[in-house]
């Protein structure tokens, strides 16, 4: 409930919320710190921190490379948990972990949840853990007030959306299109119909991610969703223009 309430409260004050994403340890934790400061200072409502994994199946080339470079630089799960704790203690917005299931599985489901809880993390996004495989884990997370955030895809039927909603907490993450992260999404009538189906399926806040890149994309979601997710775009920006470019970019989105 905690995450859902926080987002709904923020949403009362804004047309659309912003969630940003970054890969921990890429290019370094020090740069992560600077990026997060600029994100928070420029009004980001929620931050998704990806714990890198060597096989990020659902990610496109930009985030894939960030995962690999972070691991090559020696990033560990323990360091990510500690960094998450530091951020959650420093800023008054929700921080989430995004990762693949093996990271959690190998750490130990219960131990991971306890560590995330102790770090002040309020939600988890695990794209390769559908409820059929992770139902028990999702219940364990909820018991600890960590929201299991489920992803809905354009290929999900109405029945499937209802089923996913039954497991979800915090918010629902609507993937804007088929495919992996990083490519531009086209917003047309088919997309808006899909968002309307998502809206009917849940009373949780709706976040939309995959390919959101600029102010127009964010504006197009107003009235149709509650939160826009910016992923690969900031990673590319930091690669090309350095961490200082993040603040002005975030400020330009709303």
């Amino acid at each position: 409930m905690q995450l859902e309430e926080t987002l709904k409260k923020r949403r009362k004050e804004k047309d659309i919320l912003l969630m940003t994403h970054l890969v921990l340890g890429y290019p370094s934790f020090e740069v992560n710190r600077r990026i997060i400061r600029q994100m928070v200072d420029n009004g980001v409502d929620c931050i998704e921190m990806q714990i890198p994994f060597s096989e990020p199946m659902a990610d496109g080339p930009v985030i894939l490379k960030a995962n690999q470079d972070s691991l090559a630089a020696g990033t560990t799960v323990a360091a990510c948990l500690e960094f998450g704790r530091e951020m959650a203690a420093s800023y008054d917005i929700p921080f989430l972990f995004m990762t693949y299931y093996n990271i959690v599985f190998k750490y130990g489901e219960e131990r991971f949840l306890e560590a995330a809880k102790a770090a002040g993390i309020t939600g988890l996004i695990i794209p390769d853990l559908p409820p059929e495989m992770g139902g028990e884990f999702m219940t364990m997370a909820r018991d600890r007030e960590i929201a299991p955030i489920l992803i809905i895809a354009p290929t999900s039927t109405d029945e499937r959306m209802a089923e996913l909603n039954g497991w979800a907490d915090g918010f629902i993450y609507c993937a804007a299109r088929r495919g992996v992260t990083g490519k531009k999404s086209e917003f047309g009538s088919e997309f808006y119909e899909y968002l309307a189906r998502c809206r009917r399926a849940t009373s949780l806040p709706l976040a939309v991610g995959f390919g959101i890149q600029n102010r127009d994309d964010v504006a197009a979601l107003i009235g149709r969703a509650d939160m826009a997710v910016i992923g690969s775009r900031t990673i590319r920006l930091v690669d090309e223009e350095g961490p200082e470019a993040v603040g002005p970019f975030i400020a330009s989105l709303r």
Binding site: L129, T155, T157
Partner: peptide
Amino acid sequence: RKGFFGHWGGAYIPEVLHQTF
């Protein structure tokens, strides 16, 4: 039913593949 053989197997797939599977 879920595709396990003893402890092993399953289908840990992103939601976008659910219908396809």
